[in-house]
């Protein structure tokens, strides 16, 4: 029987090298609408590179991306359908948050309702915000934008523990509208929120079914 391809993002055969250094040999990730997919991996295993390859920021030697099983996916303009929050701050420094939100068609008042502190930051330029504030604003903007899939690269980094619950709650709420791919080194937070889990190691992807798999593959100690 043919698998239903609706609401599926398939990333396969991603091969990426920088000179002699092979980062990804044959990486794959499959994500579904309605699910949170986690990608774990040690530092330098190519998690961010994989996401950047999907978005077109890095050109890999090979990649295969299909959305909803369609015959051909427009790689070049994938940002219209897949939104990505990179590790680095990405909103231009000279912009205000409401300007950025307007470009992404996201309601700024929603952010204010989610976290009141942003009410008095609406006239501040992005460069005047703290790293944590900006991270929260970027996370909310990407997650609430109209996209079929969202990729969140380290959403829990530089965030006070008190906000982690809110981030997880919002991810769980939004997964009903889209597919979400998330990675972070705070793997306990990831384990709490994911439905499917993958581990990147030595350029290959391994599907994780239990905590024991993470131990066996050397990601965590017993």
């Amino acid at each position: 029987m043919e698998e239903n391809e609706d609401g599926k993002l398939l990333i396969d055969s991603v091969q990426l090298s920088f000179g002699q250094n092979t980062v990804l040999q044959s990486a794959f990730v499959t994500a579904y609408k309605g699910k949170v997919t986690g990608v774990l991996g040690r530092n330098g295993t190519g998690k961010s590179c994989l996401f950047k390859c999907i978005m077109g920021g890095i050109r890999p030697q090979n990649k295969y991306i299909r959305l909803n099983g369609e015959a051909k996916t427009d790689y070049g303009h994938i940002g219209l359908r897949v939104k990505y929050m990179p590790q680095e701050h990405f909103i231009p420094r000279g912009m205000t948050l409401p300007e950025a939100y307007k470009m992404y068609n996201v309601d700024y008042e929603g952010l204010v309702a989610w976290m009141e502190q942003f009410d008095c930051l609406r006239k501040e330029k992005v460069k005047q915000l703290s790293g944590g504030e900006l991270r929260l604003a970027e996370f909310y903007m990407v997650l609430m934008s109209k996209a079929e899939f969202c990729i969140l690269d380290e959403p829990f980094a530089n965030i006070a523990p008190v906000y982690a619950d809110r981030i997880r709650a919002l991810i769980n709420e939004q997964k009903h509208n889209k597919g979400i791919i998330v990675t972070d080194h705070i793997y306990e937070e990831i384990l709490k929120v994911v439905d499917d889990l993958f581990l990147l190691r030595d350029g290959f992807t391994y599907q994780i079914h239990s905590r024991d798999d993470l131990v066996r593959l050397g990601y965590i100690f017993q």
Partner: peptide, 18 residues
């Protein structure tokens, strides 16, 4: 160019080449 900035614009639907 600031490292992450390109993704703000790629998310809006322009390609890297553009």
């Amino acid at each position: 160019d600031r490292k992450g900035r390109i993704y703000f614009y790629l998310n809006l639907g322009i390609s890297r080449l553009e």
